[in-house]
């Protein structure tokens, strides 16, 4: 467990990044054009009312002070108030968290299933028909715009055939899985080609690696070599790739939520931009960034667990 000791000091090391993330979100949102208070109160609001509201939200302080307040509140779990929803940002986000994370996890599982199946198929039949088919799927899949694919799937499978709901999130767990299947599939089809391609290349590389050759020279069959030596060595780069691509997957859900009208964070974020609800935009951006930071930490742990050479 010596090697997992980095978990103790990793938060310290992440501090600059976390501060940077909060600073970027803060600066971004404070430089938004238009006065949100005027937007909120309408053009005929009296100056005193505007001033009072500004004071209420702390907007009359200088920027560095506002940032410190922002940090202080953040530590207390207070992300400010949503101007449109007239409720704490934290609560608004908490309500929308589940659909988004369920969609991310769902899409992740589907992409991993697709990628491992296709990559294994292609790698073990390198240069043959199955391989060409998988590579064709990858090239095509990379160029598919997710939002358009989503629309087509809705048209075909939901409107024409009625197999899946057109939009929404459902009420029960089963309902969630049913409602989210098409959106998750859409996101997965965008991510799976990247994963498949890399996993295929890694598997082929490992199948030709010296240590695999040595294992064959000791009398292991091709299947044993694949299971015992190729797969364990291919896992590590795949996990790292997955970590890097999770950012893309999250980005994908933002668009897809809008296509399928899923009441999640992505849809909320796009909507808040048009209503200039900047506290909300800020909160959501932060939540997503923290997710990435957490994912990176998980990838680190997995890397150390999977590769005895790595010391962090």
């Amino acid at each position: 467990m010596e090697r997992f000791r980095f978990l103790i000091w990793r938060p310290v090391q992440m501090l600059p990044v976390l501060l940077g993330v909060t600073l970027v979100t803060f600066v971004l949102v404070r430089s938004l054009p238009g006065d949100p208070v005027r937007v909120l109160l309408g053009p005929r609001a009296r100056p005193e009312m505007i001033a009072a509201t500004r004071h209420q939200f702390g907007l009359d302080e200088p920027l560095p002070v506002q940032y410190l307040f922002f940090l202080k509140n953040l530590l207390a779990g207070d992300l400010g108030r949503s101007i449109m929803y007239r409720a704490p940002v934290f609560e608004v986000i908490a309500e929308r968290l589940a659909p988004t994370f369920l969609l991310i996890a769902y899409a992740l599982v589907l992409s991993i299933l697709l990628a491992t199946t296709f990559a294994t198929l292609a790698a073990r039949n390198e240069g043959r028909f199955a391989d060409h088919l998988v590579r064709g799927f990858c090239t095509a899949g990379l160029g598919l715009p997710g939002f358009w694919l989503g629309i087509l799937l809705i048209m075909l499978l939901s409107v024409r055939l009625g197999w899946f709901p057109v939009s929404g999130y459902g009420e029960t767990w089963l309902g969630h899985l049913h409602h989210l299947f098409l959106p998750a599939l859409t996101v997965a089809i965008a991510l799976a080609p990247v994963l498949t391609r890399n996993l295929r290349a890694t598997l082929i590389e490992q199948m030709g690696a010296d240590h695999a050759q040595a294992a064959r020279s000791r009398g292991l069959t091709e299947g044993e070599v694949f299971r015992r030596h190729v797969v364990p060595n291919a896992l590590l780069p795949t996990v790292n790739l997955l970590g890097v691509n999770l950012g893309w997957l999250i980005g994908g859900t933002v668009v897809i939520e809008s296509v399928f009208s899923i009441p999640g964070l992505g849809q909320l974020m796009v909507a808040s931009i048009f209503t200039r609800d900047y506290m909300l935009v800020q909160g959501i951006t932060l939540v997503f960034a923290l997710t990435i930071v957490a994912v990176n930490l998980t990838v680190d742990v997995l890397t150390v667990a999977l590769d005895p050479r790595v010391v962090l």
């Binding site: 695999a212 020279s217 590590l236 999977l306």
Partner: peptide
């Protein structure tokens, strides 16, 4: 596979790359 390892075995130039690192 019955011959490899049991009748004829091999060692290689680069022991580092010929051992499975994990």
């Amino acid at each position: 596979t019955e011959v490899r390892g049991r009748r004829v075995a091999m060692i290689f130039q680069n022991p580092t790359s010929h051992l499975d690192p994990v």
